[in-house]
């Protein structure tokens, strides 16, 4: 099958790749670019494990065709920390024990980041509403919600 050339900005760096038009962004991230931090849970937009941030919006990468991201800005879990400098959300997930098996964690961190990037003081109800597109089967969400609140406080202190 003919492959299409796609140019994008991936985790802050200009990047291009070849892909088949039928390949999803999730498939290209994992199979072509070796970025396996984005996870597949359902491949039909229901679990949020493959959440990435595309031009500032949270999307399920399984429901985006890779050719669609031409010229767009893409953030994946691999770009959230800088070296060993974790993002406050990542630290908060660790400190609050907000992961058990961890398979949904990259998706939750991306979704939470998209929320806090625009609403840094979201309350519990808003967080639960925003995260309703991400399934976690281990934690019961309690510690995830607490971790996002904790990250809000940490980010506020950093910006103060």
């Amino acid at each position: 099958m003919t492959r299409t050339h796609v140019e994008t900005r991936l985790n802050g760096v200009e990047r291009d790749f070849l892909c088949e038009p039928r390949q999803s962004l999730l498939e290209v991230l994992r199979d072509e670019l070796g970025l396996t931090g984005t996870k597949e849970g359902c491949n039909n937009g229901n679990c949020g494990a493959c959440s990435v941030i595309l031009d500032g919006r949270i999307v399920n990468s399984c429901c985006v065709l890779a050719v669609e991201i031409e010229g767009q800005d893409l953030q994946t879990i691999e770009g959230v920390a800088h070296g060993d400098q974790l993002h406050p959300l990542q630290s908060a997930f660790l400190d609050e024990a907000a992961l058990q098996c961890g398979i949904c964690t990259p998706g939750f961190i991306m979704a939470s980041k998209a929320l806090l990037d625009r609403e840094p003081d979201a309350d519990e109800a808003r967080i639960r509403h925003w995260l309703a597109g991400n399934l976690c089967r281990c934690t019961g969400y309690d510690k995830i919600v607490r971790a996002v609140r904790r990250a809000e406080t940490a980010m506020e202190e950093m910006n103060a």
């Binding site: 396996t36 597949e40 959230v80 660790l94 964690t105 990259p106």
Partner: peptide, 18 residues
């Protein structure tokens, strides 16, 4: 903090499909 924590919040941890 759990020993495997950082790998799991940064997407580095290798699961079966990886």
């Amino acid at each position: 903090v759990r020993p495997d924590g950082v790998e799991k919040v940064t997407g580095k941890a290798q699961y079966a499909a990886d």
